[in-house]
Design a binder for these strands. Structure first.
Length: 524
RNA sequence: GGCCCGUUGGUCAAGGGGUUAAGACGCUUCCCUUUCACGGAAGAAUCAGGGGUUCGAUUCCCCUACGGGCUACCA
């Protein structure tokens, strides 16, 4: 990818990327990935990552969405150098607060003949679209139709001025040249070319005085000195219009390089990953839980489901990118070091919830035992009312629990449920396992085992195991005949953590207690 | 419908003229093991189809199919 390298050299500008979401709801994981790639690239290049809020559509504004976006990025460990919530020398970073700046550039385009005023009303346009539809075609406001419309190209200058000064609603539209090849180089796709006849005269300034995305993002990217515009593939068809706007504004030399990222697709069926898939298929599509302020509907989030942000970010990075090596577990710092657009796949990536769990498991295994233990301690305290100084809340005890439990879990929040018997005596026993193995004459063995345990000097795993085997031999039993029962008596379950370390962890007193309790409680 | 972008196992994907076509998730089997896991070993499974170009195409070109996106005074 020579053009890529070359461009880095001729551009002596500081690398600046931005993430520019609309606050129209919770941030979708596809959006997080876009932000992530922009962040990784900026950091790798020693540049800046900015957050700009594109709130030019007042009708779709959702309260709380902006905070949600910021909190999500924060949770993921994507640090905002500049922008909403961080400030910076190009403030404000919220487009609604920059409203007045855009008009100037729209006017400039009109003055230079690259844009014009259009007075067509929405109902009129809708009618034309409907009409075209029934005539099996499609209406497009472009070089082929603009001269039949109600705009400053078809109305006299005086009339135009009169309409404007008398307060008629109008928009400013881009005047796309006829039959021209518009080419540009996308970082991911290489050279892309469009014929301008297929590009419509996009609205640049809406009748409420707000700019559309097309004008606003260009003005802001230019003023904020953005060098790389990284966005989803859904923008590819309007990219030629954006190239044209840069050209007409005389900014072509400062135009950022565009990178159009492949989309995230549904795990099953067709289409791009959407809000609805998540709860239908049982996985979150949002980083954090979101409660819709209008309907009260709750959408689940990765954070609340117990995913580590590291795992979420790791998984997201690999949806469309790969390091070219066999390493799969990457920290944010490693991602920053290894990320490259050259390794971004062009095709859309189907999202796989199973693999996401696997990433979490990997990150769980990497958590320091001490931290896991201290978090386990707090959840234990809220769930059970252990007294102050209870042995089960001490660090050595908890660290051993964590070591036994982490290798058989994918989520930290499974610990208590999976290892409940480590903390409290079983109140019921796996009946099937007992029925399979129990014989009345085994009662003697377990009584003897209790006695032998009682006399054991050092109650550690290896000694417990030896003692267990010796007792079995004493009673002419194979260990296999009684091991499973031993486990069930201690834990109530027929499967669980390593048995002898578990006995050590419980301690002599507790083991003997549970053994006796089992012998009296179980209806054998 | 039109335009644009894609297409390597079920999924994520490496590889960009000559390869036994990596690796991971998931699945199956075996080993370890009292169990469930972890770990280890093995296995099934892929170049969408058709034409070219070439001594030779998964790789380059064209067509078709399929998938996706866009086609708003939404982003």
């Amino acid at each position: 990818m020579f053009y890529l390298c070359a461009s880095f050299f001729y551009m002596d500008r500081r690398i600046r990327t931005r993430f520019a979401p609309s606050p129209t709801g919770p941030l979708h994981m596809g959006g997080v990935r876009t932000a992530l790639y922009a962040y990784l690239f900026a950091k790798q290049q020693g540049g800046d990552f900015l957050l700009r809020i594109e709130d030019t559509d007042q009708a779709r504004f959702v309260p709380g969405a902006e905070d949600y976006i910021i909190e999500s990025l924060n949770w993921c460990g994507i640090k905002i150098d500049e922008g909403v919530s961080a400030g910076g020398k190009f403030a404000p970073y919220r487009q609604s607060e920059r409203k007045e700046m855009y008009r100037k550039y729209a006017d400039q385009l009109v003055q230079n003949g690259h844009a014009y005023y259009a007075f067509d009303t929405s109902p009129e346009l809708d009618a034309m679209r409907k009409e075209a539809e029934t005539a099996k075609g499609a209406f497009s406001y472009d070089s082929s139709s603009r001269l039949k419309m109600n705009n400053s190209l078809t109305v006299s200058k005086e009339e135009t001025e009169k309409k404007i000064s008398s307060g008629d609603h109008y928009v400013i539209r881009l005047k796309v040249p006829e039959n021209e090849e518009v080419k540009f180089t996308d970082i991911i796709r290489g050279e892309v070319s469009f014929n301008s006849n297929l590009v419509d005269d996009k609205v640049l300034l809406k009748s409420d005085g707000m700019p559309t995305y097309h004008l606003a993002h260009i003005v802001d990217d230019y003023l904020m000195e953005i060098t790389h515009a990284i966005r989803g593939e859904e923008w590819l068809p309007s990219a030629p219009a954006h190239i044209l706007i840069y050209r007409f504004l005389g900014w072509e030399n400062q135009m950022p390089q565009y990178a159009h990222l492949p989309l995230l697709l549904k795990p099953d069926g067709n289409g791009k990953l959407s809000k609805r898939d998540g709860d239908k298929l049982g996985f979150p599509v949002f980083p954090l839980e979101w409660k819709d302020p209008a309907t009260g509907e709750i959408s689940s989030g990765y954070r609340e489901k117990g995913y580590y942000p590291e795992a979420f970010v790791n998984m997201l990075a690999f949806l469309g990118w790969n390091p070219g090596s066999e390493q799969e577990v990457f920290s944010m710092d490693e991602l920053i070091q290894h990320f490259s657009f050259a390794h971004v796949h062009k095709g859309g990536a189907r999202f796989d919830p199973e693999k996401t769990k696997w990433f979490n498991e990997q990150w769980l295994h990497r958590q320091p035992d001490g931290e896991l233990a201290s978090r386990l301690s707090s959840s234990l305290q809220t769930q059970f009312q252990f007294a102050e100084g209870d042995r089960r809340l001490t660090e050595p005890f908890l660290i051993q629990c964590v070591q036994l439990l982490k290798i058989r879990s994918q989520f930290e929040n499974e610990f208590i449920e999976k290892g409940k018997y480590l903390f409290i005596s079983p109140d019921q026993y796996d009946e099937q396992a007992i029925q399979k193995k129990w014989k009345p004459e085994l009662a003697g063995f377990f009584q003897q085992l209790s006695t032998n345990f009682l006399n054991l000097q050092s109650f550690v795993a290896i000694e417990i195991e030896n003692c267990f085997k010796a007792t079995a031999a004493e009673k002419n039993l194979k260990p296999g005949e009684v091991l499973q029962l031993f486990r069930v008596f201690l834990s109530g379950q027929s499967a669980g953590v390593d048995l002898f370390p578990m006995a050590e962890l419980l301690g002599k007193e507790e083991v003997i207690f549970r053994l006796n309790a089992a012998l009296t409680n179980i209806k054998l």
